[in-house]
C-alpha cells in the first residue's frame, strides 16, 4: 500500500520533471516528505507502546521475584507446618490408643475371670471361703473399673482434641493454594505480555484474613501477632477485659 503510493508519487515526480513543471515537482516532493514523516511517527508510536508493555512486564516480573524470594519459601514452611501438625495429631492419637488398649484388655480379663466365678456361685458350686474372696475381688474390680473408665474418657477427649489439626492445616493449605493460583495468574500474564497481547493483571499476595500463625513464617515481625493464648489474654486485659 505504502509502496503503491510512493511509486505513484515517484512517477508523478518523473513526469513533472520531464515536463519541466517545477511547481508540480515541488508539490510531489512535499507529499513524499509528508508521507515519510507519517511513517516515522507511526514507528515511534509503535516503539513507545512496546516500551510501555515491557515496563508493565517488568513490574509483573518484580511480583514474581517477590513470590520466588518470599512467598514460595513461606509456602514451603507452611506445608512443613502441615506435616508437623498432622504428625503430632497422629502421634498423639496413636499414643493414647496404645495406652488405652491394655486398660481395656485388663478390664476384659477381669470381667471374664469374675463372671466365671459368679457363674459357679449362681450354680451353688462355691464354698463360703471362696465366696468371701470373690466379694473382695468384686469390690476391687469396681474401684479399678472406675479408674480405668476415667482413663478411657480422658484419652477419648485427648483424641478428640488431636483432631483440631484438620481445621488449622485446612486453612494453611488453602493459603498455599491461593499462592499457587496467584503464581499461575502472573505467569499467564507474563506469557501474554511476551506475546504482546495484554498487560498483566494486578494481584495481592497478602490475604485479607491472615489465618493460622505458622511458626517461623508469620511470627517474624515481633509484636504483630499473638503467638499464644497468654498473648491474647494479656492484650485483652490491657484493653480492660
Amino acid at each position: 500500500m505504502a509502496n503503491d503510493i510512493r511509486l505513484a508519487l515517484a512517477k508523478d515526480l518523473v513526469s513533472a520533471l520531464e515536463q519541466g513543471n517545477e511547481a508540480a515537482a515541488d508539490t510531489v516532493l512535499d507529499e513524499i516528505a509528508g508521507l515519510r514523516e507519517t511513517q516515522l511517527f507511526q514507528e515511534i508510536g509503535r516503539l513507545t507502546r512496546q516500551l510501555h508493555d515491557s515496563m508493565s512486564g517488568f513490574s509483573l516480573d518484580k511480583k514474581i521475584t517477590v513470590m520466588t524470594e518470599n512467598d514460595i519459601p513461606d509456602a514451603k514452611e507452611r506445608l512443613q507446618y502441615v506435616i508437623t501438625m498432622t504428625e503430632q495429631a497422629a502421634d498423639k492419637t496413636l499414643t493414647v490408643v496404645e495406652n488405652l488398649l491394655p486398660v481395656s484388655q485388663e478390664l476384659n480379663d477381669e470381667v471374664e475371670h469374675l463372671s466365671e466365678k459368679w457363674g459357679r456361685f449362681l450354680d451353688k458350686e462355691m464354698p463360703f471361703e471362696e465366696f468371701k474372696n470373690m466379694s473382695a475381688e468384686i469390690t476391687n474390680h469396681f474401684h479399678g473399673t472406675k479408674n480405668s473408665i476415667q482413663q478411657v474418657q480422658q484419652g477419648l477427649n485427648e483424641i478428640l482434641m488431636a483432631q483440631s489439626f484438620q481445621d488449622i492445616t485446612g486453612q494453611v493449605i488453602k493459603r498455599v493454594i491461593d499462592l499457587v493460583q496467584n503464581l499461575e495468574t502472573s505467569m499467564v500474564g507474563l506469557i501474554s505480555i511476551a506475546g504482546g497481547k495484554k498487560t498483566g493483571a494486578d494481584f495481592t499476595n497478602e490475604p485479607e484474613l491472615p489465618g493460622p500463625v505458622v511458626p517461623g513464617v508469620d511470627d517474624k515481625e515481633v509484636g504483630d501477632v499473638a503467638t499464644s493464648q497468654d498473648d491474647v489474654d494479656d492484650l485483652l486485659s490491657s484493653l480492660g477485659f
Binding site: D167, Q171, L209, P210, P212, D224, V225, V232, L235, L239
Partner: peptide
C-alpha cells in the same frame, strides 16, 4: 486461628 493483634483489638 486469626491471631493478629489488630484483629483481637477489633473483636474486642
Amino acid at each position: 486461628a486469626e491471631a493478629k493483634k489488630e484483629q483481637i483489638v477489633m473483636a474486642a
